[in-house]
Amino acid sequence: MTTTVDPNYWSLLGVSPDCDSNELKLAFRKEARKWHPDLNKNDVNAEERFKLINEAYAILSDPKKRKEWEQLNNKIQDIFENRFPTYEEYLDVVLGIKTNLENETDDINYQYSDLPEDEFEDNEESNFKEYIPTTSDPSPPPTLIYEDQESIVEITPDQALYGSSVDIQLQNGTLVEVLTPPFAGDGWRLRIEGAAIGCRDHFVQLKVQTDDGLRIDGLRVKYRLELFPHDALLGCAVDIPTLNGPVTLQVPPNSSTGRLLRLRGRGLKYEEYRGDQIVEIIIVLPDNLSDSELALYQRLNEISMENY
């Protein structure tokens, strides 16, 4: 009988333990594209599989984490090979809980074995003196509180779509290579566990934006369209940027902040898949309104109050 605490990461990525770093990267990118939730909307297990693939690469690409994972799994396989583990082995190896029940029992027996018998007898004539400490216990030394660290990394839409390697400098000056997953999006945060001072985590936030304000999210493209109140109320035609150049968008009347308009097929393309561009309406006030404009807004407000 053989069991493991974690899934077989080598099998998840479809590589052998003898593969080199380049083969590991290629396998990770292939499996990540295959199981990305955007491309498997009808598969309820795709998201969980995608997370496991990212977890597998994070363990196998880090020599220290990989060694710890292999040692743990080998130890578990040894104790499960021909017998069932003892209770202490189960807590120690499988659950990671250290036990020392025998030593604890010995310490308890020792504490009471040398006490004289008369220590437990009632003796009304005994004089007990109250212990009053002359000095207070020393204060514990101050504890340094460390915080998680975060870096912002800019990548292109193509790098977000296919995955890329970026170098991150940690607080101690160490350079680490971080492999971004395929179909990444603007605002995604990748965690480097235990890399910051004090065993805190270092987060890498991805910035995937174009110069004209397009934000990438997987195969989708997002754009915030700011409109003056009268344009949103009456409707208007406005030119907006896309990855393939500007297009004219007809904004329907009575559009409120938060309304989403879809431009089909204006997102990123991957094989036979094509994403959409989502335009979010944001209503803003013009800067430096004139007195006549302010008067019109005030009159509009009065008319609105009269109708209620």
Rank of each mutant, 00 (worst) to 15 (best):
I192R: 09
L289T: 09
L26D: 13
E31Q: 15
Q77V: 09
N100K: 09
G173Q: 00
P17Q: 06
S136W: 09
I216D: 02
A295L: 03
F28P: 03
P63C: 01
T180I: 15
N8I: 07
D276T: 05
Q169H: 08
P157G: 03
K34S: 09
G96H: 03
E117H: 06
R299N: 12
R191H: 04
I76N: 09
K65R: 15
V238I: 15
S255Q: 09
A56S: 05
R200P: 05
L179M: 10
E48W: 05
V279E: 07
N127F: 12
L101S: 10
G14N: 03
E193L: 05
R189F: 03
R215D: 01
L175T: 11
R33C: 14
M1S: 13
W188T: 08
T156I: 03
S256I: 12
F28A: 02
D18W: 00
H230V: 12
P252C: 06
P253E: 03
S11N: 10
Y273D: 14
L39E: 04
T143K: 12
K41T: 13
L144F: 04
L219W: 01
F128S: 13
N42M: 09
E177R: 10
P182M: 02
W35I: 02
G185K: 01
G96W: 02
V44Q: 08
V15P: 04
E272A: 04
N73G: 09
V166Y: 03
L300C: 07
P133R: 13
I282E: 14
L39S: 02
S151Q: 08
A32D: 03
D107W: 07
E154M: 07
L24W: 00
A295Y: 00
E293Q: 14
T143M: 09
N74A: 14
D107F: 08
L39M: 06
R215G: 00
F228M: 10
I282V: 14
C236P: 04
V284C: 05
A56E: 02
E280M: 11
D211A: 09
L300R: 07
L60R: 00
N22R: 06
E154I: 06
E104Y: 06
L263I: 11
L144Q: 13
G14K: 00
Q111V: 11
V178M: 04
S256E: 15
I152Y: 11
E272R: 06
Y9L: 10
V204K: 01
T210G: 02
D276M: 02
S255T: 15
W35M: 07
W35Q: 06
V5R: 15
H36S: 03
N54H: 11
